[in-house]
Design a protein around this nucleic acid. Structure first.
Lengths: 345, 345
DNA sequence: GTTAGCACTCAACCGATGCGAGTGCTAACC
DNA sequence: GGTTAGCACTCGCATCGGTTGAGTGCTAAC
């Protein structure tokens, strides 16, 4: 037995209906609501075939059918009708941040919030990341008598800052002089390379040995255990809107997963290359997510860094809507980050 | 009718039992489990009195009694037996960050996570804040050809940074010179004062007018809509462990509240003065939280800034345990932030 | 190949029933 | 007078059987 045009049409109707209602759909519903000039009996025969082909499941014998993961896969790959979403909230993201003052965290938090509100699912936004960033400026800013802030600007535009203890009292001019020297030496190098260059510098510049030594330790630490990136999450409570999460135990396990941001980030970030991914149910590879789907898109910064935006929802997600929202948001973010504010040129 | 010694003892037993089990407790349970040499009938009479006094509620006539908010209030105020909690996770917080490199956000995130794990409730940690912070250093760090990072160090030790567009190409020395001038002029002043001083500077220093103008706009914006502080939350899913949140609708409204961090912060932050607060049920003043209690403690930094740590749980919270954990954590954080890393002296 | 008809299945709903935890009251006891 | 045993009473909760209705599979006719 094979798929034919009609089976496709019926399958699509079933999926559309199930996505809308979340209730197993029966043959009568299809023959009535989606008038395709066939009686329920015929639909029934076709549905029986579709079940045999693995596209439909039956929760129990006297219930309607629900689409299988395989069906959703077919759906997103070929049957889904896509359309553009026009929504002011989306358009306004770049406008919201069009003023020149903004911080990366605020942007991705806001993006996650907008996406989750619009989709009514859970949204995750990962900050841009890329290949080894190259140092651009290193600067020490006095914070207190015996501590300074290390500001590291890389070509990724990402700024990492942490305080470092000073060996003794040092005035701002001295710190600036050291900063200049550091910037000159380290500019264009990766963090790893910087860790090799610094020791040489130390032997050459005896005067500020202790300070540089401290900075060296700092860089080493930064490299070995890189700063955990900020992951923005929005609308975790949205999941409780869907009947599939009426089971408290299910909801709990989902929410705990959302709390472990590291794990979550690695799930969302999975396949870095693809611009657009849809993983359905088991395809997510996460046992806790067998009845979730994950859709991700990416955005990029002027310097070629890639960030990821994702939506997590039930397998009966409104794929087309979600994909179009993610796509628009991806463009908005790319546009925003190409403005030059956070990138070099 | 009045409270006497025995009523107290019985009330305490009831509360202890209810906190443990979450099930309405009956007279027999008390007379058996907590042997106080009284028959269930006597306990019944006393319970009836306690109900009349407003300390107990009866969900329905043939069920046991549950403590009222008034009872919990009495409990935390006088009957509760307190004890120290010894737990390695708590002790290790300051050790975990004993290296000199750390960022405020990491610390409070970690604290929230530890508290929520230990208490099995939801933990919230607010970063330190105080009266108008005073500027200490202003520094412009080149980020790209036409953008610079504004690093503002205040006596609060809190560093706010954002990028600002440069009017034209400016080398690092020029930026440093401007930074020095700015620091000299603005040091010791509040943000509000700085906004008044800057225009004067601009008229005096014609040369970098455009840059300073931009900076002025930046400061104004910062002042008008101050940077939303990072609120750390841990263990939101813990609430679903408790039968009182088996109702999905309740859980949903609680979780949505947890997602609006601003609102949450204002709830937790409520009364800034007190070192230790316990708000029970309606005392929280938040409709969504009528059957929650909030316990908060505070910690401080060397510069006298106050931060808040809080736990949100069901009214039948293990108050004593929570209070002792918060107290220990408060000390740990205070100790950590007195190390000088993030404060001035 | 399509469809009307029909017997069958099974979750969900409903109401009756019984159980048991717990109460309030009364009367006896110390 | 406080304490307690005894007892009738209440009421949530779980169980059970019956009913309903959506939906199926099969068959026979078109």
């Amino acid at each position: 037995m094979e798929m034919d045009e009609r089976k496709m049409k019926i399958l699509q109707a079933i999926i559309d209906d199930y996505i809308l209602t979340g209730v197993p759909v029966g043959s009568r519903t299809i023959s009535r609501k989606y008038d395709m000039g066939l009686s329920s009996a015929t639909i029934r025969n076709e549905m029986s075939d579709l079940e045999e082909l693995g596209y439909l499941d039956q929760p129990h014998v006297s219930a309607g059918r629900i689409p299988s993961a395989k069906a959703y896969r077919l759906y997103v790959d070929s049957l889904m009708k896509t359309g553009r979403i026009r929504d002011d909230s989306l358009e306004s993201v770049s406008r919201h941040f069009s003023g020149r003052v903004h911080q990366m965290e605020d942007v991705i938090d806001h993006a996650a919030s907008v996406i989750s509100t619009l989709t009514r699912y859970t949204a995750v936004v990962l900050p841009p990341k890329g290949k080894q960033p190259r140092l651009q400026t290193v600067q020490l800013v006095p914070v207190s008598r015996d501590a300074a802030l290390v500001v590291i600007v890389t070509d990724a535009g990402i700024v990492r800052d942490s305080t470092i203890r000073l060996p003794g009292e040092m005035d701002s001019d001295t710190l600036y002089a050291v900063s200049r020297a550091l910037t000159e030496q380290l500019q264009g190098h990766t963090l790893a390379e910087a860790c090799e260059i610094l020791p040489e510098m130390i032997t050459r510049m005896q005067e500020n040995e202790e300070l540089l030594q401290g900075l060296y330790g700092f860089l080493r630490e930064r490299q070995e255990k890189p700063h955990r990136p900020h992951v923005a999450i929005g609308g975790t409570s949205n999941m409780l809107n869907y009947p599939e999460y009426n089971d408290v135990e299910k909801a709990r396990s989902f929410l705990s997963l959302m709390e472990t941001r590291d794990k979550l980030a690695s799930i969302i970030d999975g396949n870095g290359e693809m611009a657009f991914t849809v993983r359905i149910g088991p395809e997510t590879g996460v046992p806790e997510m067998v009845d979730c789907s994950i859709v991700t898109a990416s955005y990029s910064t002027r310097s070629g860094q890639q960030g990821t935006i994702g939506v997590i929802g039930p397998t009966r997600m409104q794929y087309s809507r979600v994909m179009s929202i993610l796509s628009t948001m991806g463009h908005q973010l790319t546009e925003l980050f190409s403005g030059g504010d956070e990138s070099n040129e």
